[in-house]
């Protein structure tokens, strides 16, 4: 735009906002100097703009109240999300049990009560439900990240009532991402999540469990394979999208890892 082009309303507005290109400022000011009405109107608009800003200045300067701190909003979100997912996971488990007993009944097989299921099966199912729920989570796969591993393990150990270590699965290409606390079978359960270089996720699930069944139980649900076992009052399950052959050595390594910790205690 040339310097002697006629002044248009858009330019007067840009002048009010201090957004007029410098090249046009002199032309606009000359125009205003010659036009009393325009001059008074623009002066008034400039004053209104400044008053509005001034009246709101104190609001901008106020300290941000704690309820609007990101950390607090996040903590509140985590609580509601966990509550929601807990309900979801519990629902999934009830559904799984209902579906299987219903199938048995429909086939005129014996009725199987939940307690009659081998304890490892319960652990495997809980672990699988927890795996399904959280492994797809993009924003919050874990509640506490591995950066705070010490804190994570201390916290989970306290809630679980068992000293928990995060087994080193780097020989298998899996690195610890972090973990979370879940409702177990009437008590707390812990889930540790690992991922490999391609983002494939593996979970280790631990909760209190009765029984003395130490044999590994293998279970497959779609692409997810689970090995579960019970060792000295606790049920363990390793779940990953892997074949039985790939997962077995990992489950064995975890089993040995926990065995040594428990015996060293």
């Amino acid at each position: 735009m040339t310097n002697d082009a006629p002044i248009v309303e858009d330019e007067l507005q840009a002048y009010v906002d201090g957004r007029l290109p410098t090249a046009r400022r002199a032309a606009v000011e000359a125009h205003l100097a010659q036009n009393r009405d325009a001059r008074e109107r623009i002066a008034l608009e400039v004053r209104h703009r400044a008053s509005l800003r001034g009246q709101l200045e104190h609001k901008f300067a106020e300290p941000v109240p704690p309820r609007l701190w990101i950390a607090n909003i996040r903590a509140a979100r985590r609580t509601t999300m966990l509550r929601r997912l807990t309900a979801l996971a519990a629902g999934a488990l009830i559904f799984a049990i209902g579906a299987s007993s219903g199938w048995l009944a429909a086939n005129h097989e014996i009725f199987v009560s939940v307690s009659a299921l081998p304890p490892t099966s319960g652990v495997a199912q809980n672990a699988n439900a927890a795996y399904r729920t959280f492994v797809v989570e993009v924003a919050h796969p874990v509640e506490v990240a591995s950066a705070q591993e010490g804190h994570l393990l201390q916290w989970l150990s306290r809630r679980l009532g068992k000293p928990l270590v995060a087994p080193d699965l780097t020989p298998f290409g899996y690195k610890l991402m972090g973990g979370r606390l879940l409702p177990g079978n009437g008590s707390a359960a812990a889930q540790l999540m690992y991922d490999d270089a391609r983002g494939k996720r593996l979970t280790l699930y631990v909760r209190a469990a009765e029984g003395s069944e130490t044999a590994f139980r293998y279970q497959r649900d779609g692409d997810a394979a689970t090995f579960a076992w019970i060792d000295r009052g606790f049920g363990f399950a390793v779940t990953a999208p892997a074949t039985r052959e790939e997962l077995l050595p990992i489950a064995e390594a975890v089993y040995r890892g926990f065995g040594s910790v428990s015996s060293s205690k």
Partner: peptide, 22 residues
């Protein structure tokens, strides 16, 4: 994943001002 906290927090005073004006 970039932590959104430090990217969002500096704008909270202005958001409060706009919300209050509305």
């Amino acid at each position: 994943m970039a932590d959104p906290g430090p990217l969002i927090e500096p704008h909270i005073p202005a958001l409060r001002r706009y919300a209050f004006a509305l």
